[in-house]
Design a protein around this nucleic acid. Structure first.
Lengths: 214, 214
DNA sequence: CACCGGCTGTTACTTGCGGTAACCGTACTG
DNA sequence: CAGTACGGTTACCGCAAGTAACAGCCGGTG
């Protein structure tokens, strides 16, 4: 049997793979998302073809890399979302978790929001729509699931939950991105503002000088 | 005086510029955002260096191109936002305007959400944060201004308005992107769902089986 | 008229990246 | 000891961004 052999090989290949991913991680963290395959290979102490043997192409490497971080972040978010607290508190805590993560490692964050490697290589024909970073999609779907599981939305709840999931995630993302760039206020203030928005203050607040309601 | 001369030259240069932009537009619409400078030059009937004389580098061309579309879209959105109607109606109409635009010309939409040409050329050192497409930022600021002008948000209104502006725009964007990719429902349904979200239904709706409020 | 500076346009090049083909050593198997 | 399968390397291709250096045209000037 080559079972044991294959197991051994598999194991060593997996270790290699993890090493390579960690090296790639370091480089991306240092050089941003446009890190070159050469640079990554050099950091790992090997040369390009090995990277290609392991990950196929640059997209493959980046996908693998993104998965790790995405999984980690999603775990944190799930934890915040599952905490035994009132709804508003859970929402705020989830927002804060996300913002804390992007604040702590902005380079990683920037990398994750980057499907746009484009490349003239071979895969240039990916359809419009779904252009967003996979992380956003996954967060949206995840949140949609939680919403649908826990809230009573009446008929069409599945669709509505997904709309809300993606919408809320997008809100969080865009506000976070803007905040990270300009730092116009503290994290807590941002969280409060967004939660207020989700809590309907937009509908509740009065007009300024015009007659209210019109 | 070379004033008249310079004016003439300026005029002709401007016309050239517009022609080039239109050619670039056609190519980007056909090939997506990874259109090559060669292709654009060919479409315009000239060669690369002319493009570079006019726009500096690829980023410059893309920025100019993006501005045109962004301006146009922002004009539509402003119109919807300024319509004499009730707040909810204005919000729905603005959402619908945006979604109609991205539905009508998805390639353009995809192009606009794409700052990530990356490029190892010379400008790689742009800071984290502000990684978002300029369109999103501009829409966010625009909306923030409208919100602050019209709503009475109490103290700290400026900041809160900006948080909301960017948040709402992000919600619209992410939901639109997801919707465009999967088409899970009609545009009207999406608009309704998002408006409901903004109108506080998230806070108002009941829990499913657990005791409400906990 | 010949001459010259500025403009538009070209060809041909450099650099750097993603991706690959073909080759090399070494350790394990019969 | 021959064979072979695998980790690794060098050297290369194709392609796109960006640039340098050269070629025609046109108006002003001795």
């Amino acid at each position: 049997m080559d079972t044991t052999q294959r197991t051994d090989r598999q194991r060593s290949a997996d270790r290699r793979r993890r090493e390579l991913l960690e090296a790639a991680d370091r480089v991306v963290l240092r050089d941003g998302p446009q890190a070159s395959m050469n640079a990554i290979a050099a950091e790992a102490g090997i040369t390009k073809p090995i990277l290609y043997r392991h990950f196929g192409d640059k997209g493959g490497l980046y996908a693998a890399l993104a998965q790790r971080h995405t999984d980690a972040l999603l775990d944190s978010l799930r934890a915040a979302l599952d905490a035994p607290a009132e709804r508003r508190e859970r929402v705020e805590s989830t927002l804060d978790t996300y913002l804390a993560a992007i604040e702590a490692r902005p380079q990683v964050y920037r990398f994750l929001m980057h499907p746009a490697e484009g490349g003239q290589g071979s895969d240039q024909g990916f359809d419009v729509g779904k252009h967003s970073a996979p992380l956003l999609r996954r967060m949206g779907e995840e949140l949609a699931q939680v919403i649908e599981e826990r809230l009573d939305l009446g008929p069409g709840s599945r669709q509505l939950a997904r709309v809300w999931g993606h919408g809320i995630v997008g809100m969080m993302h865009a506000a976070g991105d803007w905040w990270l760039g300009e730092r116009p206020c503290s994290r807590a203030e941002l969280v409060r503002g967004l939660a207020d928005l989700l809590w309907g203050r937009l509908a509740a607040v009065d007009d300024k000088t015009d007659s209210p309601g019109f």
